[in-house]
Each structure stands twice: as C-alpha cells, then as structure tokens.
C-alpha cells in the first residue's frame, strides 16, 4: 500500500510542483495521467524515494517514508519498491537472468534462481535468459524489467511510462502482465504515463 498527501517539490523557485493526493491499496492499480512537463517523473521519483519532497507525507506499507536518511531510503526502496522505467535499462554486460537476479543481490536478498526462471516463463521470455539484454526487442526488454521489479516481492510497483515505446499489441500485453503479476504478489501498482491507450485499462485514475 502506498499513500501520498500534500506532496510538494521544487527544482528551483520557477519550477515548483504541487501534487494531488494519491492512495493505492494492496492488489489495486492506480493510473496517474499527465502531459509532458506536469512532473510525472518527479512524482514517481518522490514515490520511489529517489527524491525528497519539500513537504508532504509518503506512507509505504503503512510506514512513514518521506524523511528517511539516504541509506535507509535505499534499503526501503530495494526491499519494498519495484521500479519499471520508461526505457528498460540494464547492466549491459550481464545476461538477462543475471540482470533479474541483480535485484535480489543488490537488496541483500537470497538469489532466487527458480523464481527468476518462473517469472521468465510467466512473462514469456524464458528462451532468452542467457542472452544479453541488448539482443532482445523493446517489448521483451520491458517484460524483463517487469520480472526484475517483482523479484523481491515488493509492496509497491512503480512504472514510469512502461508502454510509451511499445506498439499497441505489446502495450496491451505488458500492461496486462503488470496488473496480473502485481496482483498475484499483493502489491499496489502505480503507473505514471501520458499514454491515452491505458485510460480504459484502469478504474482508479488521477490526472496531474
């Protein structure tokens, strides 16, 4: 579960953001729609504890998380938040499966190879596990990053424009997988996008 209230952030005195309150319960999905320049990525980084808000509160799994020290924020993020970025990025020297296991390793969790293979089968890229990530298509890469975000059974999954670089069929596939997988581990799913195609896929919507 993740809730945010009265969030405020400024890069400079000219570039200030006031964000609407957000709440997403376990197993639920929330779509945050917004045009470019409305602070979508900023909001996502605030929710992901990558940025500290000037004011306001963020609760992750019922615990206050907006004023943690950087070390603690990193630990909470690694353990409780799965992030999917707009363009799937990986450690390019590692294979697909190692990139997925990296998520366990960096969060100091046990490396669960069986789980990585299971997720790859579920998400349909099991035959690519030993390839380098650059050998995969955009749609496949996005599915790998979904698997990576699920490895530590996070409480919250944050997705930043997960579908913007995908065609219609891949878009639908990816968003359905995201919804199904996050529900299956009981996580809250927050998708931030300007992609109007997703509008009808979510009943909970917030517009920036």
């Amino acid at each position: 579960m993740i809730t945010a209230s009265n969030l405020r952030f400024s890069y400079s005195s000219l570039k200030k953001f006031d964000f609407p309150d957000i709440s997403c319960k376990d197993k639920e999905a929330l779509l945050i729609l917004g045009q470019s320049g409305k602070g979508k990525t900023t909001l996502l980084h605030l929710l992901a504890l990558l940025l500290k808000p000037d004011s306001g509160e963020i609760l992750i799994a019922g615990k206050l998380a907006n004023s943690l020290s950087p070390e603690l924020a990193t630990r909470v993020r690694a353990k409780h938040i799965g992030i999917i970025y707009q363009r799937p990025h990986f450690v390019s020297s590692l294979s697909v499966i190692d990139n997925i296991l990296l998520s366990n390793y960096l969060a100091n969790q046990k490396q669960d190879r069986a789980k990585a293979i299971y997720l790859a089968q579920e998400l349909g890229f099991a035959e690519h596990l030993s390839k380098k990530t650059t050998q995969l298509s955009q749609g496949e890469q996005q599915r790998v990053s979904i698997a990576r975000s699920l490895m530590n059974d996070p409480n919250v999954i944050l997705a930043d424009e997960p579908t913007s670089s995908l065609d219609d069929s891949n878009c639908e596939k990816v968003i359905n997988l995201l919804k199904r997988q996050s529900a299956s581990i009981g996580a809250s799913l927050v998708v931030v996008t300007h992609d109007q195609r997703l509008k009808d896929e979510f009943s909970n919507r917030v517009t920036l």
Binding site: L50, E71, R77, A78, K79, H89, V91, S92, L106
Partner: peptide, 18 residues
C-alpha cells in the same frame, strides 16, 4: 557510458561504496 547503469544499480539498493 555506464552512468545510467550505475544510477540504476544505486536505485536498486547498491551502496556507492559497493
């Protein structure tokens, strides 16, 4: 070239010292 990779690993829980 790997600046993004480093930021990614940091966001995934890696410490800077690591």
């Amino acid at each position: 070239e790997r600046k993004y990779e480093m930021a990614l690993m940091l966001s995934m829980g890696a410490t800077r010292s690591r």
